[in-house]
Design a protein around this nucleic acid. Structure first.
Length: 285
DNA sequence: CGATTCCCCTGATAGC
DNA sequence: TGCTATCAGGGGAATC
C-alpha cells in the first residue's frame, strides 16, 4: 500500500520522466476515479510534481501562453492498490510482469486512467480495487497534518501531538490530518523500533518514549525510501520495478513469526478497523 | 469533540 | 468443481 516512502519514490522517478511534458489527452475508463473536467488540463504542461503525505500533485501551467500566475493542479491518491507506470511510447514492454496486470504490457484490465503526452509517451494509472483517484483543483489538495519529511516535523511537534489526546498511539499516527505520511506498514514498524505498544494511550508516553518514537518514525521512513518502498501487494515504481522494503519489515505482516529481537511470536490484533502487529515482549504497555 | 460503524472494491481463501 | 461467505485496508460519511 503506498505510504510516504512509496509515494515519494514515485515522485522522484516520475519527475524525471514527465517534467515539462504537455498533456495531449486523457482516457478515463472509470469515471468515478476522476474528478474535474479533463478538457481543463489538456494542452497544459507539467512543470513540477509535489507531494504531501500520500497525495501526489502535478503542477500544471498553460504551455502556450505561459500564464505563470495561473496554475492548475492534478492531484493523485493511490490508496491501497494504485499504480502509476510510465512508458516512452505505447506498447512498451516492461522487464517484469506488472502486479494484477498479468503481463509485461499496458494497458491492462486494471488500467482505469491513461494520460497521453504530446511526445507520445504515456502515464498509466492502474488500480485493482478502484479506491484511488485523480482530481483537478486550483490549489494543491493536501492533508492537514505535518509531512514527516518536512522540517516542521520536530520532536516538539510530536510531543505536543501525543500529549493532546488519549487515543491509542497507533491510531493517532495514522491520522493524516495530524501527521501526514504513515500508513499501516510504517506505523507498525516505527512503534516496534520505539518499543511502544500500539494500544498505549498517546498522552501516557514518557519523555524517552516520545523521543524514541520521533527517531523511529524518521528511521522507518528513511529506510523505506532507501529501498524504494515496499512492494507488498500492488505497489511498483513508475518503471514497473519492485521496491524492496518488504524484505525489511520489522513486524508488519509477520504474525506468528519470531520477533527479530527476542524471537517471541509477533501478535496481530485489530483495532480501529485495522490490523496491528507487535511483539508482546518488546512492546509492553 | 471523540469513538464507532459502514462503505467503496476485488482477489484470495475457507467452508460446504 | 463451483458456489457462497469472509476478509483486507485508506479515508470519507453517517451516527451516537
Amino acid at each position: 500500500m503506498p505510504e510516504l516512502p512509496e509515494v515519494e519514490t514515485i515522485r522522484r522517478y516520475l519527475i524525471k520522466d514527465i517534467r515539462d511534458k504537455t498533456i495531449k489527452n486523457i482516457d478515463i475508463k472509470v469515471a468515478k476515479q476522476f474528478t474535474g473536467r479533463k478538457e481543463d488540463v489538456i494542452g497544459k504542461k507539467i512543470i513540477d510534481i509535489q507531494r504531501k503525505g500520500k497525495i501526489l500533485t502535478f503542477k500544471l501551467v498553460n504551455s502556450l501562453t505561459r500564464e505563470l500566475n495561473n496554475f492548475l493542479y492534478l492531484n493523485i491518491h493511490l490508496k491501497l492498490t494504485g499504480q502509476l507506470v510510465f512508458a516512452k511510447k505505447i506498447n512498451h514492454k516492461y522487464k517484469t510482469a506488472i502486479p494484477h496486470a498479468n503481463s509485461n504490457n499496458l494497458p491492462a484490465k486494471t488500467t482505469h486512467i491513461i494520460i497521453y503526452f504530446t511526445d507520445n509517451s504515456v502515464l498509466y494509472f492502474n488500480d485493482l480495487r478502484k479506491f484511488g483517484w485523480m482530481k483537478i483543483t486550483n490549489k494543491p489538495e493536501q492533508p492537514k497534518g505535518i509531512d514527516i519529511l518536512s522540517s516542521d516535523f520536530t520532536l516538539k511537534y510530536l510531543t505536543d501531538l501525543t500529549s493532546s489526546t488519549s487515543k491509542p498511539i497507533k491510531l493517532l499516527l495514522l491520522d493524516q490530518d495530524k501527521l501526514a505520511g504513515l500508513g499501516n506498514i510504517y506505523d507498525n514498524d516505527a512503534l516496534f523500533l520505539a518499543k511502544i505498544n500500539p494500544l498505549k494511550k498517546s498522552n501516557s508516553l514518557s519523555k524517552n518514549e516520545q523521543k524514541k518514537l520521533f527517531n523511529s518514525i524518521k528511521a522507518v521512513i528513511e529506510t523505506g525510501l532507501k529501498f524504494n518502498g515496499a512492494s507488498d501487494e500492488s505497489y511498483i515504481l513508475p518503471n514497473a520495478q519492485s521496491g524492496k522494503y518488504q524484505k525489511h519489515f520489522q513486524v508488519y505482516g509477520r504474525e506468528k513469526l519470531p520477533c527479530l529481537v527476542c524471537k517471541t511470536p509477533i501478535k496481530r490484533i485489530k483495532h480501529g478497523g485495522r490490523s496491528s502487529f507487535y511483539c508482546p515482549n518488546c512492546q509492553k504497555i
